[in-house]
Design a protein around this nucleic acid. Sequence first.
DNA 1: TACATATTTGCAACTTTGTTGCAAAACAAA
DNA 2: TTTGTTTTGCAACAAAGTTGCAAATATGTA
Lengths: 140, 140
Amino acid sequence: MEAAVSEILKRSQLSVTDSRKRILEFFHQSSGALAHADIERLSGEQFDRVTIYRTLQTFVEKGIIHSIPTADNSIRYALCKDDCAEGHHHDNHIHFVCDKCGTTFCLDHVSIPAVQLPMGFTSSQTDVIVSGVCKQCNAA
Amino acid sequence: MEAAVSEILKRSQLSVTDSRKRILEFFHQSSGALAHADIERLSGEQFDRVTIYRTLQTFVEKGIIHSIPTADNSIRYALCKDDCAEGHHHDNHIHFVCDKCGTTFCLDHVSIPAVQLPMGFTSSQTDVIVSGVCKQCNAA
DNA sequence: TACATATTTGCAACTTTGTTGCAAAACAAA
DNA sequence: TTTGTTTTGCAACAAAGTTGCAAATATGTA
Ligand SMILES: [Mn+2]
Ligand SMILES: [Mn+2]
Ligand SMILES: [Zn+2]
Ligand SMILES: [Zn+2]
């Protein structure tokens, strides 16, 4: 794990530092998306708040994670899959927020439905956020 | 206009006050959605920030306006159409954010597409935010 | 390995955004 | 007009995010 995250950082031409390794590990260990506050909690007093802000920002720029808009207006982040690179995200999937456990999932295999816009409007991006109850919570 | 907004307030069983009338007028005069900061700017020093927060909250509860999730994580609000009432919103439309002018539109006549969720997931609500270039900006 | 250079971090100070309690002001009903 | 209820503004606070800068850490080279 430790070696794997270092590789990812190097591939993105980032210096390999404690905070970056640690924060990237959190994402690999988590099933859902993480907010700034989650990382702050997970890391205890290990890093300064500012470092977490800057690390998340850097990861987004490098195409390592993407940010997720949610209905309750809290920014969350999740790992990008394959083909995101610096300045080029290709995260064409919908997001699901569980009303029970609060987890935010990337549903990678559900593609974004096409919407028919009124005349004159042109679209560059479509975000879909579905809320409801997730698999785990429905089973329980 | 002044009389019209007073009517709406009374219908929702709200006291008719200066701030409520004024803020509701802003929404009727605006083509797009408004954020708290927009209202603060539009009203100058006329009202306290706290009053604006409380007024928006009250309007949402009464079904007069609805809040709109946006990709840049700023809450915006727009007027509800017909059949929203206290505690019962029926705003089944998508939202469009223009990358050029920044305006957020409610596209009332575009219905929410159905998405096929993975086994085990059940949905209660779907939010769709399309970004791109709006009619006005495309024409210009 | 040691050094020089470039990058990142932590701290402090600050801004912006949002919340709460409470007394004064405004409103609604009689 | 009077009375009781609701709303407002103020103050104080909490949470969230930003910026500049010096110290610490990482990287590439000798
Ligand atoms: Mn995602
Ligand atoms: Mn709307
Ligand atoms: Zn769940
Ligand atoms: Zn536009």
